[in-house]
Amino acid sequence: MTNAVQAAIVAAGTAVVLAPINPQALRDSEPAPAPAPTFTAVLLAHAEATLAARVRTALGMPGWQPRADLGETETRILVWSQLELDDFYLRTGGTVTTQMVERAASDGTTWTAEEITLTVAVPGVGPVQVFTDWEESLAKFGARNELPLMRAITA
């Protein structure tokens, strides 16, 4: 790049920065500000954040936030495998149940899965469910009858 080209770039940039701007033109094109949230909405948002924070702390899940698209709420948490759920069970104890559920993919296909749910009593929150589907391909890392989680099934 020659000195002349560099000087032209600097001159053009300086001209843009120093060009007079009519602030009224900017104000007219700005969207109307969003209405302020109501007091009740602020309190509910704070309560939900506080609930998620208490669950996160009690279960040792730093950074966890519920994802509705995965079926999670502040008191219902998805983990990715029965092995991870077994680790939760060994750390926290709780009640283990299973149920057959119908799952659907984004393309509309459905299948039946065995959902394993660990219910843990969290102080100051109440019952919290941690759940996953049984994945047979992971049984090589912990067979059904070898996992303490699966031996603890109550229903």
Rank of each mutant, 00 (worst) to 15 (best):
N3M: 02
A4I: 13
A4V: 11
V5W: 08
V5L: 12
V5H: 14
V5R: 12
V5I: 12
A7N: 10
A7D: 12
I9N: 02
V10G: 01
A11H: 08
A11N: 07
G13V: 06
T14L: 09
V16E: 11
V16L: 15
V16S: 08
V17L: 15
A19Q: 07
N22C: 12
P23C: 13
Q24S: 08
L26H: 05
R27K: 05
S29N: 05
E30D: 03
P31H: 09
P31I: 03
A32M: 10
A32Q: 07
P33V: 13
A34C: 01
P35W: 00
P35C: 03
P37E: 13
T38V: 04
T38G: 14
F39L: 12
T40Y: 07
A41C: 06
A41G: 12
A45M: 03
A45I: 02
H46P: 01
H46W: 09
A47K: 09
A47M: 01
A49G: 15
A49H: 14
A49M: 03
A49N: 12
T50F: 06
L51D: 02
A53S: 07
R54L: 15
V55N: 01
R56V: 04
L59D: 00
M61D: 01
M61Q: 04
P62E: 05
P62R: 03
W64E: 00
Q65A: 12
A68L: 09
D69T: 13
L70K: 08
G71T: 13
E72T: 08
E72M: 08
T73V: 15
T75Q: 05
T75C: 11
I77L: 15
L78Y: 14
V79N: 02
S81G: 14
S81W: 00
L83M: 01
E84R: 11
E84Q: 08
D86W: 02
D86Y: 07
F88T: 03
F88C: 04
Y89I: 12
Y89G: 09
R91P: 02
R91A: 08
R91W: 14
T92E: 10
G93D: 13
T97Q: 11
T97Y: 00
T98S: 11
T98N: 13
Q99H: 04
V101E: 14
A105E: 06
A105F: 15
S106L: 14
D107V: 05
D107L: 10
G108I: 12
T109N: 13
T110S: 08
A113C: 09
E114D: 05
E115M: 10
I116F: 00
I116A: 09
V120Y: 02
V120I: 13
A121K: 09
V125A: 04
V125E: 00
G126P: 06
P127N: 05
Q129N: 03
V130Q: 06
V130I: 15
T132Y: 00
T132K: 02
W134T: 12
W134N: 11
S137K: 11
K140V: 14
F141L: 08
F141W: 08
A143S: 04
E146L: 11
L147C: 02
L149Y: 02
L149C: 02
R151F: 01
R151Y: 02
I153S: 07
T154D: 05
